[in-house]
Design a protein around this nucleic acid. Structure first.
Length: 260
DNA sequence: AAGAAAGTCAACCGCAGCCGA
DNA sequence: TTCGGCTGCGGTTGACTTTCT
């Protein structure tokens, strides 16, 4: 017998998401929120399982996500948190605004792990791998790491409002994108955050409002300009997700809109 | 230029925990 | 208290890209 599959396997698509699917998912969530992931694909017209939708949204489509590699401050924070929490990636991700557990996990496995090993530190225990091995970097990290990290972490963890800017300021990557439509993003993301798409979202607000009320979702009043859309979206995100960093994203987007 | 090897990361799988009936 | 459904989490896979030979 065994466990019931999370979704009906028949007719459920797997593999990479297409731009069309992304558009459907984003439009639906922006319009309706995610009531329950299991029902969402059907309601959104997607041939995906709810799990897949949730993952796609949380790891890639969420508007508050930072794109690009972790900067040094974030990396140090991950190392410190990993020393305390172990492989609890979601807990670690919770301390890094705009980062996902999957992203951090991948970065840990591909970059940080190797970096630590190279420095003679066991990435699992965070202890020196061999007592007699003291590479040049070792004293720097072992002796000063916790002092520095403590300072860094205090800044990063305790100040929600400043966390993003702190990270940005510490970043060595001058091109780190602030908003979702960054130069690193694929064309689809550019489209999603383009005026064309945003106007389509407004269409969706109008078109699906009736259906939403039938389903018991909260429907948002559509608006014709992008700024108002962001205000609605911000409310939605704050209420449903508790996101605070949208102000930054919003401002960035609005600034870009002004420039265009 | 071409094939192999290594690196990266999006996505999937299955388990654990929570919650309501 | 037990059971079943749902969500979230962490481990893993595999496709794609980049680097090396």
């Amino acid at each position: 017998m065994g466990r019931q599959p999370c979704c009906d396997k028949l007719g459920v698509k797997k593999g990479p998401w297409t731009a069309e699917e992304d558009k459907k998912l984003v439009t639906f969530i922006l319009t309706n929120g995610h009531c329950c992931w299991r029902a969402l694909p059907k309601l959104a017209g997607l041939r995906r399982c709810g799990k897949s939708c949730r993952l796609r949204w949380t790891n890639y489509l969420r508007p508050d996500l930072k794109r690009g590699l972790l900067n040094e401050a974030e990396e140090q924070l991950v190392i410190d948190l990993h020393a305390r929490l172990g492989n609890r990636w979601s807990k670690i991700a919770a301390k890094l605004p705009g980062r996902t557990d999957n992203e951090i996990k991948n970065h840990w496995n591909t970059h940080i792990k190797k970096k630590l090993i190279k420095m003679g530190i066991d990435p699992v225990t965070h202890e020196p791998l061999h007592e007699h091995v003291t590479p040049p970097e070792m004293p720097t990290l072992v002796d000063t790491e916790h002092q520095e990290l403590s300072k860094t972490n205090d800044n990063l963890i305790t100040s929600d409002a400043n966390s993003s800017s702190t990270l940005e300021n510490n970043s060595t990557d001058e091109h780190r994108p602030l908003g979702p439509a960054s130069e690193d993003d694929p064309l689809m993301m550019s489209y999603i955050w383009s005026d064309e798409f945003l106007s389509n979202v407004s269409w969706s607000f109008l078109a699906q409002g009736e259906e939403c009320s039938e389903l018991g979702f909260s429907s948002t009043t559509p608006s014709e300009d992008g700024s108002s859309w962001w205000l609605d979206y911000e409310d939605f995100m704050n209420e449903d997700f508790g996101f605070n960093c949208l102000n930054e994203v919003k401002m960035e987007t609005l600034e870009n809109d002004d420039k265009l």
